[in-house]
Structure formats: structure tokens, C-alpha cells
């Protein structure tokens, strides 16, 4: 790379570096250093107190034989699969509907977006009451239509789906708002031309809206992947990973091993595996998704 010898430009760039320095410092101190330390700890048996011996790959070998971790990994993948796709599809549909001049457009936008600005812990508490087998509104509603009540969070087969439904409900609003922003960038002329050519509304949606929103979808997909694989709050508040590990996730296992059992080294190995999964997924998205910017080539 050639050195820039223009002193004026050098001074201007120096200003730019100073401006980005605070965010880089924050990233370096609160993200990069902990990340490096976590990777280092994953090769030790650190117990938050004294023991700090190098144990090589034994934490990683233990991981693949740990039934709880394997269940947590399976639950995390199931959660991610069933949360990512519905939240994106529903977010898109709601955005398209609320992008039109419908009655109470602003009100509906606010209603759908509100859960996103509410903390996950608060929402989990509210849904905990809704799922309550004795007094929860869901069972009351089922009772009103003559159906038997369910043990939503206590039935091992229903507990994870119950958390998934709640998470989708919370995350739709974020997808909707990003899609709404994306929809503003789609040129109106495309729809006008399609209408003149006799394309139906459904055809316009699949042939114009969906392709034109590909970069937005790509962005949402990457964010959703990282968020879904680090699911923790709702699990910890609503089920604590139970019943019988039916809802435990990788981050929940990390928390349990690190702060309940003080096996910081082992927990760090789980965190490192999760980091590798997230980075791999993101890089794959970038490579095979072409960052969503392949419209010009088609």
C-alpha cells in the first residue's frame, strides 16, 4: 500500500482516526480483550478462586461427551431455526401491509414495535403469567372454547415451543421496522410498470418487493442468527432450562457452569465453541449470501 504523502489529507485522516477512537477503545476493552481472555481460559481449569492450571484440550474433549451440552446445542439449533425464519417472514408481511395506507397505520406500527423496546426480562415475566396453568389467560381462553388447559412451560414437549412463540412475538417488531425502512428504498416506478404489464399484487410482491429487499433480509438474517444462538434471558426467567433440560441452551449452560458451579474454564470452552459457530454462520452468510447485493448481476 502506498503511503499518503499529502500532509493536508494526512491531517484530515488523523481527525477521522480520533473520531473513531472512542468506539474502537470501547470495543477493544469490553469485547476484544474479554474474547481473548475467554479463549485463553478455555484451556485452563480456572474456578473463579485459585486454580488456574493449563489443561490443554480437555475442556473441549469433555464438551463432546457432556449430555447436557449436547441437549443444549440441539435446543439452541431448534430455537434458532424456528425463530429466525418466522420472525423474518412475519416481519416482512406486516411491514408490507403497514406500508400501505391502512386505517390506524401509525398506531399499528407502534403496537408491533413496542415489544422490541421492552426488556426481555419484563416480557418474559408477562408471558410467564400468561402461560400459568391455573390462572393464565391462555388456559382461560382455551377453557372458554371448551378445550383443556395446557401445562405450557411444564410439559417437556411444549416448553421450548412456548418460548419460541414468545420470542417470535417480541422480535417481529424489529424486523418490521427494518423492512419498512427497506421498503422506502424500492422505486415506485417498478410497481407502476408491473401494474401496466398486468402483474397481480402477489406477483409484484414476489417479483419486486422480495428481491429488492434482499440486502435488508440479509442484514436481518445475520443479526437474527447471532441473537438466536445467544438466547438466554427468556430461558433463565421462564424455565431455568427445565423441565429436565427441555429448554436449556448453550448460553444457559455457560451461565450455569460459570456462575453456579464455578467451572469458569469449562464454561469458557462452551463460549468459545459458540463464538466459532456464530462467526462461521456469519462468514457463510457473507460468502454464500453475497451480502444480499447480487441484484445487479441478475
Amino acid at each position: 500500500m502506498m503511503k499518503d504523502k499529502n500532509p493536508k489529507r494526512k491531517r484530515r485522516y488523523a481527525g477521522v482516526y480520533w473520531m473513531v477512537l472512542p468506539s474502537y477503545l470501547i470495543y477493544f476493552i469490553f469485547v476484544f480483550i474479554p474474547l481473548v481472555v475467554t479463549v485463553y481460559l478455555s484451556f485452563t481449569n480456572y474456578d473463579l478462586y485459585k486454580t488456574h492450571d493449563f489443561v490443554g484440550l480437555s475442556n473441549y474433549i469433555r464438551l463432546v461427551h457432556d449430555p447436557d451440552f449436547l441437549i443444549a446445542a440441539k435446543n439452541t439449533f431448534v430455537y434458532a431455526f424456528f425463530v429466525i425464519i418466522p420472525q423474518i417472514i412475519l416481519g416482512l408481511i406486516i411491514a408490507v401491509v403497514l406500508n400501505r395506507k391502512v386505517l390506524g397505520q401509525r398506531f399499528h406500527r407502534i403496537v408491533f414495535y413496542m415489544p422490541n423496546v421492552t426488556s426481555m426480562v419484563s416480557i418474559s415475566m408477562i408471558w410467564l403469567w400468561m402461560y400459568d396453568p391455573t390462572q393464565g389467560v391462555l388456559n382461560q381462553a382455551l377453557k372458554m372454547v371448551g378445550l383443556p388447559g395446557q401445562r405450557w412451560l411444564f410439559n417437556p414437549k411444549l416448553a421450548l415451543p412456548s418460548i419460541i412463540v414468545m420470542s417470535i412475538w417480541k422480535l417481529i417488531g424489529y424486523n418490521m421496522i427494518i423492512y419498512l425502512a427497506g421498503l422506502q428504498q424500492v422505486p415506485e416506478e417498478l410497481y407502476e410498470a408491473a401494474t401496466i404489464d398486468g402483474a397481480s399484487a402477489v406477483q409484484q410482491f414476489f417479483r419486486i418487493t422480495v428481491p429488492m429487499l434482499k440486502p435488508t433480509t440479509f442484514f436481518l438474517f445475520v443479526i437474527a442468527c447471532v441473537q438466536s444462538f445467544s438466547v438466554f434471558d427468556q430461558v433463565n426467567v421462564m424455565t431455568q432450562g427445565g423441565p429436565m433440560n427441555a429448554t436449556t441452551t448453550i448460553v444457559h449452560q455457560i451461565f450455569e457452569h460459570a456462575f453456579s458451579e464455578f467451572q469458569m474454564g469449562y464454561a469458557s470452552s462452551m463460549a468459545t465453541v459458540l463464538l466459532i459457530v456464530c462467526v462461521t454462520l456469519t462468514l457463510s452468510n457473507f460468502k454464500y449470501g453475497n451480502q444480499g447485493n447480487d441484484l445487479g448481476a441478475s
Binding site: 417437556p156 427445565g242 423441565p243 429436565m244 433440560n245 450455569e256 453456579s260 458451579e261 464455578f262
Partner: peptide
């Protein structure tokens, strides 16, 4: 003791309670 109180004995109890 943490493993006993918070993990394995509760797990045994749940496995029995739910008939697994």
C-alpha cells in the same frame, strides 16, 4: 455441593416426577 443441590438431585427428582 452446588452440583448436588442445584443440578443432579433436582434432575433426578424431575426425571422421577415426570415418569422418565
Amino acid at each position: 455441593s452446588q452440583l448436588y443441590v442445584y443440578k443432579y438431585l433436582p434432575q433426578a427428582q424431575q426425571e422421577a416426577f415426570y415418569g422418565m
